[in-house]
Nucleic acid binder design. Sequence first.
DNA 1: AAATTTTTCGAAATCGTTTGCAAAGAATTA
DNA 2: TAATTCTTTGCAAACGATTTCGAAAAATTT
Lengths: 338, 338
Amino acid sequence: MDQVNLKKLAKELNLAVSTVSRALRDSHEISPQTKERVRELAEKLGFQPNPHASSLRQNKSKTIAVIIPEIENNFFSQVINGIESVSPTKGYHVLIYLTHEDYNKERDMLQLLRNGRVDGVMVSVSNTTTSFEHIDAWRQAGLPLVLFDRTCDELDVPNIMTNDAEMAFKATEHLLKRGCKRVAFLGMGGNLSISNRRKAGYLAALEKYKIATPPQVIELTAKDYINRETLHQVFSQQPPDGVFAAIEKFAVNTYEVCKELKLHIPKEVKVVSFSNLQAAALFDPALSTIIQPAYDIGREAANILFKLIEKKILMPFEKKMVLPSQLIERASTAELIR
Amino acid sequence: MDQVNLKKLAKELNLAVSTVSRALRDSHEISPQTKERVRELAEKLGFQPNPHASSLRQNKSKTIAVIIPEIENNFFSQVINGIESVSPTKGYHVLIYLTHEDYNKERDMLQLLRNGRVDGVMVSVSNTTTSFEHIDAWRQAGLPLVLFDRTCDELDVPNIMTNDAEMAFKATEHLLKRGCKRVAFLGMGGNLSISNRRKAGYLAALEKYKIATPPQVIELTAKDYINRETLHQVFSQQPPDGVFAAIEKFAVNTYEVCKELKLHIPKEVKVVSFSNLQAAALFDPALSTIIQPAYDIGREAANILFKLIEKKILMPFEKKMVLPSQLIERASTAELIR
DNA sequence: AAATTTTTCGAAATCGTTTGCAAAGAATTA
DNA sequence: TAATTCTTTGCAAACGATTTCGAAAAATTT
């Protein structure tokens, strides 16, 4: 036994284990002198309390889980960064779980975490998620949970998101004002709240500007080669003159296909996309983007989760928090020079 | 108490706690019939063993830690993805810690994790790390640890990395063969193993091709605006005609500054960089990159860590594993058309 | 039928920390 | 001085799962 624990300290100091424990937790019922003695030896022996014993006894793990669809995506990386800006200050540890856009995995993970391993979870649901029972089960069990970005409006659970519909409207409007007549929307299938919000914004803009040509909603997938094939097929018949991509990846696919088909951006096709890629400005041409406040979303979501964990009462605005995105106009939606 | 535990199951079944425990762990000393009875009720009541109690008793946490400098970087995201491709299959959970390139944080984290919270750690050291005592302390304590990418050759700890020196040599050689006379190297300060290896490869290439002009090593930082300032200053005097960036971020900075100074890439300056950004092909001009096998590095590092945890003996090649990178030549290093 | 082995299960200790309660001594009050 | 509080400490029981040890019961062998 080279591991130092309370018992060892207690024996060394001729004290009871309980006294040592209390001394280290700075309890008022321990005299300053003994506290000092205990602290000194603990320091000297490099004592570190066993987290499993503490967790077991106190029934709290000082750990939270982050469940996201993927991580090779600037948005989610930045969210994690935001979360990590809070968690250490609260003494919390962060577990990461990837669903790879698989509802079954998501459900199973959430189920598996209901054993006290974590004190709360932050979820951005996968795009194959149709039922929210697994989320609701957490809510019903009274366990702390927040949804971010890919949320679910119906549930009485804190949502932290951005103004998707509004920005989708603005992006579409931007394309229309730049002279586009046939604007296509690239979304991911499923009935993800986020997809719906973005599609709704797109449709609203078309309606407001009384666009005659019917909306063109193209549903893409997680696989690049499938997307390229789909786009290739659509674009080689009658290409749209404006593309609004709901995800960065789809904008990249659009660029690739336009290059293949020798469609000039922005002369023949203008492109705007939700994206948090800093390097979007270096694209050929520079990509107009809607930047989401990913870091802030992560930070605020974490703050709210910790409030839930600490059983503090949430302010009304914290139940459904909307952090605004920003539209950056770049060359990919530049006006034609006549 | 709505929480189901062994005691509850035992009482319900008129069995001893130990029997229930053994039945659920499929012990040979429990009859098939009772096993079935126990399993059925456990299933029905949704029993999930308390991980803290198990961890405490068994002295293992089924958790590993990943300590990385940052996460808003495609490379590290891909590494995590690789790790996550292994850990669930082993029943392990993954904690993420960010050092933000701060040696003190790194040291403290490693110290803090020496309390049984995790069964092993994977570290990519920060660039402010000069001493490796904190790493060595783990090794000496016999705790499982692997280093990846940003490693330390001196220590007797498994290293999983890529062929940095070789690829740096190739990248520099590539620039020289494309006609560059004054190739600059953009590295990050500190004496990180990875920086040294890349710098060494750069210098070796200059030497082999007997370049008369002295090497130009420019040390950049984590802050974009500082880097832009530095590069602006250097480039506005006598710009190099070739730039080899050790990190993606520095290539982006180079692009930005070249745009400011109206230096044409690749006519006046050719650029090649270590980068795992898929979108590098869409840059203006498309960026020549050295792609690191990030996913594989994560996967292999995790595999080796689990071998250590399971006290399996490592094969010699697993102690220092080198996974090859790939040089993709694109427009940013295209030959001039005369 | 007796002796032995094998199968099946229970009691209790254990992991390390926290905490309710009791007890002793010191300090204060009546 | 006696009765009371307050301060400081120790004892022991949790928390929930695992595991050692041992004891019945059943199956097998002699």
